[in-house]
Design a protein around this nucleic acid. Structure first.
Lengths: 148, 148
DNA sequence: TCACCAGCTCAAGGGGGCTTGAGGTCAAGG
DNA sequence: CCTTGACCTCAAGCCCCCTTGAGCTGGTGA
């Protein structure tokens, strides 16, 4: 007996609002069974899915990307250890990438402090943003940022 | 002779669109002088401001927060080294915080891989999101995330 | 029996961050 | 002189991510 949850309880426990939970369903992040009175019933694993969604948003992923990621989990059965392991690992890579990006940014910022930003030609932060000049150079994180 | 830039050149060099530059002005992130024909004229330092804006957005700050941050820079004169140093340092703290947050997340994720997420009671990611249970416990990054 | 409250659906609204479009103004070049 | 192109000012529209509201249903307890 899997002990199904109502949407209210799901919302309370996940910290996601009731309408948001329904919205996620329309966006394909979640599915639900219905009881006799047409009310949504969720297995406890939905809490894990929602925790995953919230965390992924925090990392900057769109709901669509998150949905794609979650689509790798089986809807029909309870995810196994290896299901989650695969997902967690792939996601960890994204977290790592994001951290690396921020660290690069931090380095630029340090360089910026160092140069005092008085010399335009030497300022990493400035040059990173100067598309007309940085074309073909090494520092182009701003453009990459806009593309992703 | 500061060699002023037109909005088109500013846009091309900063990688920010022309309307976006104007929009930033309405949001108080930028100011501009006008020439005889009422066209905006920018000092070169606007490129630094825009690079800063793009970078700050990347870190997840809203335009309002960025505006508040930039408000500490002098509008009238060219920012001095210490102006930028102060700003960069305060911002670096935010970057550090964001990195720390992601690292915490990564640890949770590692724990999640370790436990295989089969035991709900032991899963860090799950418990972090379970508001009803985590109340008063140590792991509440999800709620903090939503509040900020 | 009846009130209540949790849910349901569908439609509209709202904030953030721009983009797009309409219509008008210079300044320069052929 | 007339076109072209860079700018200008609104105003409206868009995408994302939800929130809010209206109107209806169904199980539950006094």
């Amino acid at each position: 007996m899997p002990q199904l949850l109502g949407i209210g309880e799901v919302a309370a426990r996940s910290g996601v609002s009731v309408p948001a939970v329904r919205y996620y369903e329309t966006r394909g992040l979640l599915t639900s069974a219905r009881d006799g009175g047409n009310r949504r019933r969720y297995p406890r694993s939905v809490l894990r899915r929602l925790a995953f969604v919230s965390a992924a948003q925090r990392v900057g992923l769109s709901l669509e990307e998150i949905a794609a990621s979650l689509a790798e989990l089986p809807e029909g059965r309870t995810p196994t250890r290896s299901d989650w392991t695969r997902l967690s690992r792939s996601w960890r890579a994204r977290v790592d990438a994001r951290i690396a990006e921020l660290e690069r940014l931090r380095e630029d910022l340090d360089g910026c402090i160092g140069c005092g930003c008085l010399s335009l030609r030497r300022c990493a932060l400035y040059n990173a943003g100067d598309a007309a000049r940085a074309e073909g150079s090494g520092s182009r994180w701003v453009r990459e940022a806009r593309g992703s």
